[in-house]
Design a binder for these strands. Structure first.
Lengths: 332, 332
DNA sequence: CTGAAAGCGCTAACAT
DNA sequence: ATGTTAGCGCTTTCAG
């Protein structure tokens, strides 16, 4: 056991409350005393016991990040960990810690209720992947600082934060239009399952609609191989498109291969653009122009919101959308 | 504030110590009383205050996972988060929580010292990326439960755990030999910087040495593009190798493209194998035979060790190496 | 089998 | 500017 406040106080010849105040930089302690006590603390290697402090203060400086942490999620969803990383950095800056916790979707309502009631943490960041209506009731009933990462897929009055996929789509389209491209093909995933692609398409349509232009969309491209095959077909046309826009890096690889196979030049003969910078749009040949979202920054913002909410619990429920970023590279 | 043990005790007409014991399943409380108290607790929605409990018990059930959490690490090092995920799952199973904490390498010694002294957690898992000799002294001096993830690159008496890259290399080589392949080319990264490839090569050499065979190694292949170029050269030879073994997925993509470009059949004309399952050896066409390491499992093991160490602090320092796994697919 | 009481180390209101 | 003291909610020893 390391030294306690009592030992430090007696060595310094003051009361424990003076020590406490000095260490917490209270205005009511003279600079001289503060200085002296701090030096002695340093000397003795005294550090306040975090557990006692949490107990006395009735808060422990912990924020929980709750999500489904199934095996493989590190590989399948690195974006989430990038958010976690950003959140951690902001929190530790402010003296907080981040607990990462597995919360399965089916038991989430009870789990979250318990987390709140047991005071294990001062606030909660939850991944929308585990969000259900039932969970939203739990969150709504308690006045506990929380934030959902990801737009809920039902009507709600929750606090949430998400990427604006619509803006991303619009940004991509506007960029292409600015560059003078007109005939574009958008390769996306399954029309029913791939909500993100659909939201991107909405954005694209807005931008093209303003110019009274249309986008050719090919849906159901769920793999590298399918995108290669579909691109091959596209390249057989009499008039090939000026640019192919892929909804993710995997599709762009298949696309690239078909283009390479035909010995077409990029971007002179046909251009290519993708969403997401991850995992290899910067590694391909040529490097791909991409729309990316700064997930780290998003984590930072989430953490900032939670800490605000802790300070001002009656802060209104709000939602935010983060702005995507254009990375212009060789492929356009 | 939710209910306290006092309220529950008074409702149940017993003392708080009885409640405490009942809830902690002490042997000295009758089953009947335990039953009754638990029911009442449930009914009132009583849950022990985690902060008070940590304080009284002098432990808080928290393990810290410390690593350099710089921006981008979620994408660059998903393996680490897979370990984190595995650790979290084991810990939460045992009633523990996992704090993820950014610890920059340069200040790690002091940071870790503070973490230990402030009792913020009951144990520490540290990524070898932030390990220095100075940090190893700190760890050696204190009797605090810790574990390093990753083999230290200097002599030490630390507790650490790592993937056995040598076994992985040996396993890959033995598999290829078993399949009858003899002429193999190993594509690896920079000979000075890429320690992991070197360790894999050691394993490969052991396996081939036993058969008195040699492996052709081409080093300095650090990108997708380089591997494509080098493979192109290889395929121009009179006698092409039977199989190309790539040290990672990115190299295998370049390799694949060159092979496809030449219209060679895989694995009939030439086979291909890679290390790591991530991020796309299962998505390529054909799917690639790969050696992978279960990082999730490694996290689980790390967590298990830490909890053991907490129970038995004088457990001897030890190190472990996890066994890699062969994923046989279409490319061999 | 149950209860009384002494902490656990620190914070914060109040008194000086 | 500093000290006194009453908690914070629970665990645990000891007595009954």
């Amino acid at each position: 056991m390391s030294a306690t406040i009592y030992e430090l106080a007696s060595k310094a010849g003051v009361s424990i409350s003076t020590v406490s105040k000095a260490l917490n930089d209270s205005y009511s302690i003279s600079e001289k005393t503060k200085q002296r006590i701090r030096e002695m603390a340093e000397e003795m290697g005294y550090l306040p016991n975090a557990r006692a402090r949490s107990f006395a203060r009735q808060k422990n400086g912990i924020i929980i990040f709750g999500a489904d942490l199934s095996k493989g999620v590190g590989f399948e969803n690195p974006h989430m960990f990038e958010i976690v990383t950003g959140a951690e950095r902001y929190l530790s800056d402010k003296g907080y810690s981040l607990i990462l916790k597995h919360i399965p979707k089916d038991t989430a309502p009870e789990s979250v209720k318990e987390l709140i009631q047991s005071n294990e943490a001062d606030g909660l960041i939850l991944h929308a992947g585990i969000l259900t209506k039932q969970l939203s009731y739990v969150l709504g009933k308690e006045t506990y600082p929380y934030l959902i990462i990801g737009k809920p897929d039902f009507a709600n009055t929750l606090s949430w934060m998400d990427v604006s996929h619509e803006s991303a789509g619009q940004m991509a389209a506007n960029y292409l239009l600015d560059k003078g491209y007109r005939r574009i093909v958008f390769l996306m995933g399954d029309e029913n399952k791939d909500q993100i692609s659909l939201r991107r398409l909405d954005g694209i349509n807005i931008a093209f609609g303003e110019e009274e232009l249309f986008v050719e969309t090919i849906a159901g491209i769920s793999s590298y191989e399918k995108s290669r095959a579909v691109t091959e077909e596209i390249l057989k046309r009499d008039k090939i498109p000026e640019v192919i826009l892929c909804t993710n890096n995997y599709l762009s690889i298949g696309c690239l291969q078909s283009i390479h196979a035909k010995n077409l030049r990029i971007p002179e003969d046909i251009a290519i653009m993708t969403f997401d910078n991850y995992p290899f749009s910067m590694l391909l040949e040529p490097t791909l122009t991409a729309i990316e979202v700064d997930m780290f920054e998003m984590g930072t913002q989430a953490a900032r919101f939670i800490l605000q909410k802790i300070k001002k619990p009656n802060l209104l429920t709000q939602s935010f959308c983060t702005t995507p970023l254009l990375l212009e590279r060789e492929s356009t």
